[in-house]
Simulated assay, not measured.
Amino acid sequence: MIGGRGGDRKADEVRRMLEGPHPPVPAGLADRAVRRGARLLRLRRGVRRTAWWLAGTVFAAFLVWAGVEQPWLPEPAEVTPPLEGW
C-alpha cells in the first residue's frame, strides 16, 4: 500500500513496528508498577481526605462566626433618637 493515502502509510508503519522484534521488558517492571500505583492511590486518598477535612473545618468556622456576629441583623443605631413628645 505504498503510495496510497497518508493514513494507510501511517497504519502500515505502525503495523511494521508492532510486528517487529519487541525490546526485552525489565525484570520486576509489573511489581514496580503495582507499588507505584498503590502509592499514588494512597496519596490521592490522603489529599482528598485532607481537602474534605479542611472544607468541614472552614464550614464549622463559618457557622460559629455567623452565630456570633449574626450578619443578617441590622446594625444598631449609633445615635438614639431624641425623646420628644412625652
Score class of each variant (00 low, 15 high):
residue 49 R to E: 09
residue 2 I to E: 15
residue 5 R to V: 14
residue 30 A to W: 02
residue 72 W to I: 03
residue 20 G to A: 01
residue 31 D to S: 02
residue 18 L to T: 09
residue 78 E to I: 08
residue 1 M to H: 13
residue 3 G to M: 01
residue 61 A to H: 03
residue 65 W to C: 04
residue 4 G to I: 00
residue 81 P to I: 14
residue 16 R to I: 11
residue 42 R to W: 07
residue 51 A to D: 05
residue 66 A to F: 10
residue 54 L to V: 06
residue 13 E to Q: 11
residue 69 E to P: 11
residue 35 R to S: 04
residue 40 L to F: 11
residue 66 A to Y: 14
residue 31 D to N: 01
residue 81 P to V: 15
residue 45 R to H: 11
residue 73 L to Q: 04
residue 83 L to T: 06
residue 64 V to D: 00
residue 68 V to N: 06
residue 45 R to Q: 15
residue 11 A to D: 07
residue 62 F to K: 07
residue 11 A to L: 08
residue 17 M to T: 12
residue 51 A to C: 05
residue 37 G to L: 11
residue 78 E to Q: 09
residue 24 P to S: 05
residue 49 R to D: 04
residue 82 P to K: 00
residue 18 L to Q: 04
residue 42 R to K: 13
residue 77 A to H: 07
residue 56 G to A: 01
residue 15 R to Y: 05
residue 59 F to E: 06
residue 42 R to Y: 05
residue 70 Q to V: 12
residue 63 L to N: 14
residue 29 L to P: 02
residue 66 A to P: 14
residue 71 P to H: 00
residue 47 V to M: 14
residue 36 R to V: 02
residue 56 G to Y: 00
residue 64 V to N: 02
residue 19 E to D: 10
residue 74 P to S: 00
residue 32 R to K: 07
residue 7 G to H: 08
residue 10 K to C: 10
residue 65 W to H: 06
residue 21 P to Y: 04
residue 2 I to D: 12
residue 18 L to P: 03
residue 85 G to Y: 03
residue 48 R to G: 10
residue 84 E to G: 09
residue 9 R to T: 09
residue 24 P to M: 05
